[in-house]
Design a protein around this nucleic acid. Structure first.
Length: 527
RNA sequence: GCGGGUGUAGCUCAGGGGUAGAGCGCAACCUUGCCAAGGUUGAUGUCGGGCGUUCGAAUCGCCUCACCCGCUCCA
């Protein structure tokens, strides 16, 4: 991305964030208390939009398919589940930072070094009557000049100088003492500087269960699930036994997951609490790779159906070495966000890894039994795992548009429109009486509202001029507005009676439609 | 986690140690026959939060929180 494009996209993203707040799509969590990092709340329109997305995903993947069933697992997760999956223990890398350069290093990957350590307690500068007290140390390798330690230490202490004009060379070091050490990993091999203590970066939220749980009672520890997948694997056998289903089949789930991300970024894109839409599709080992391809195509089609065109999506075939160790094939489906191309969904062929691990740790027989072939085995699994909140953000970014429109007087204005597909749009129809001070128009509009509202989310609006009301609906992405006028009431004869103006958002075109046909017309567009 | 930036009305932003501002939006009423029309009236702020300096802080200092940008990280 060029600098100019990058800046334009930053501005665009700012406008999207601003619109989302202004119109009630997304708010920062706990905003009146200063905000909670990495957490977001959906307002009235955001909640409708998200609901539409989840409902459509569920309908397409569960209700309209015989071979996929749904489930809804608990968020609090038994620690043994996550020990088996490898989330506890395996994925918490100890990290430390270089005190001099701030570089971050993996503590377990530092080569042990030997030499002389020079310790200091602080530094001062006589001329400016400045001093700092802080423990610091530098490692000098065998055969290296000891003055290197002093130079490095002065550089370190100079970071605390308020007057940056003072040269590090003019600092007096205090409390120097030295000792010989062997095989230490406490120093940065690059510059000899002391490192911070190693800290674990396990991204799981941990909690304790039970009212009287003892802080030291390890058995009371539970986790907020870091992915929905594990609850599916753990209930695999129960779902199998209660549903008379045969391979290949899937278990689908929509639900919240939690990761204590070090650095949440890009609006709602990387949040600490997020919702996933996931399918674990179980199959015979020999069908896994082909099903991965099939699911990739099916998922790409899904995005097109909700209004994210194929040309704004990228498929990344994760190469050997970058995939999780258990995966033979993984595709990432990415979207061109204004802040860059980022992942929406992963389609991963996970083999029998998860079921194998849970069989080992639980010591339970969770195999699939093929009665006809008289076979007993652990199925392989293909996992299309989509980020719900990320998809919402993609829908909003994709829909956002500023058009220049020219009015009758030739004046140019900007029209802000969200081009949501009727399927996803939070409000399907805006219902507008042409004038609010004519009771007959208002009553008729209210009748239409009552006619449609059991079937879809509609919005009644009588405030302000008709043009303004159209624009308000454009800004929240309402695909259709119907306007009740005097023709509707029969003032221009029976032919026009009980018809309304149907105004389409994207083209701004208008046509006449009978009230009796409205429901079917809109339902057809939004299914 | 590091570095830089920002934070004032619902939104966009101006101001800058001494009574809190504009535009847009919002609400009510009037007007209004289809694309942000006009008029009248009105509501809204702990100037992100805390501590300090000061007779007095939105303004200066320190701390902190959040967001944005660049690194870093992301099973």
């Amino acid at each position: 991305m060029s600098d100019a494009t990058s800046e334009k996209n930053t501005v665009l993203m700012g406008k999207i964030v601003s619109l989302c707040k202004k119109r009630g799509f997304i708010f920062q969590s706990g905003e009146i208390y200063g905000g909670l990092n990495g957490c977001w709340d959906y307002g009235p329109l955001g909640a409708e939009l998200k609901r539409n997305l989840k409902d459509y995903w569920w309908r397409k993947n569960v209700q309209e398919r015989e071979d996929i069933v749904g489930m809804d697992g608990s968020i609090l997760t038994h620690q043994d589940v996550l020990k088996a999956s490898g989330h506890v223990g395996g994925f918490s890398d100890p990290m430390c930072d270089c005190l001099l350069s701030n570089a971050r290093l993996r503590a377990d990957q530092i080569e042990p070094q030997s030499g002389t350590v020079y310790h200091y307690t602080g530094a001062s500068n006589e001329e400016s009557d400045w001093s700092v007290e802080r423990e610091y140390a530098v490692l000098v390798g065998e055969g290296q000049d000891e003055n290197k330690a002093r130079k490095t230490a002065r550089l370190f202490y100079s970071k605390f100088l308020s007057d940056k004009q003072i040269s590090p060379k003019k600092l007096e070091l205090t409390g120097e003492r030295s000792e010989a050490v062997e095989n230490t990993t406490l120093f940065n091999p690059e510059n000899g500087s002391l490192l911070t203590e190693a800290r674990d970066f396990n991204l799981m939220f941990e909690t304790r269960m039970g009212a009287s749980s003892d802080e030291n009672d390890e058995s009371a520890v539970a986790y907020l699930r870091p992915e929905t997948a594990q609850t599916i694997f753990v209930q695999f056998k129960n779902v199998l036994d209660s549903n008379r289903i045969k391979l290949p089949f899937g278990i689908a789930q929509i639900g919240k997951s939690f990761r204590n991300e070090i650095n949440p970024r890009n609006y709602t894109f990387r949040s600490r609490e997020f919702e996933q839409m996931e399918i674990e599709f179980f199959c015979r080992p020999e069908d896994g790779l082909a099903l991965t391809e099939e699911w990739l195509e099916r998922r790409l089609t899904f995005y097109e159906e909700i209004g994210i065109p194929r040309e704004h999506l990228h498929v990344l075939d994760i190469p050997d070495g970058e995939r999780a160790h258990y995966s033979e094939k993984t595709y990432d489906i990415e979207y061109e966000f204004p802040f860059g191309i980022q992942e929406l969904e992963g389609v991963a062929y996970r083999g029998a890894y998860d079921l194998t691990k849970h069989k080992e740790h639980s010591k339970k027989a969770i195999e699939y039994v093929d009665q006809e072939a008289k076979e007993k085995f652990l199925p392989h699994v293909v996992e299309p795992s989509a980020g719900c909140d990320r998809t919402i953000l993609a829908l909003i970014c994709e829909a956002y548009d500023e058009e220049t429109v020219t009015d009758e007087k030739g004046k140019e204005e900007t029209r802000t429109v969200l081009h949501f597909s009727p399927r996803m749009a939070p409000v399907k129809v805006g219902i507008l009486p042409l004038l609010k001070n004519k009771p007959e128009l208002v009553a008729k509009a209210r009748e239409i509202q009552a006619l449609l509202s059991p079937f879809m989310n509609v919005f009644y609006d009588e405030a302000g001029a008709i043009g303004r009301r159209y624009r308000r609906q454009d800004e929240i992405g309402t695909p259709y507005c119907v306007t009740v006028d005097f023709e509707t009431l029969g003032e221009s004869g029976d032919e026009m009676k009980d018809t309304v103006t149907l105004r389409e958002r994207d083209s701004m075109s208008q046509e006449r439609i009978a009230i009796a046909d409205l429901r079917a017309f809109v339902l057809d567009k939004m299914m």
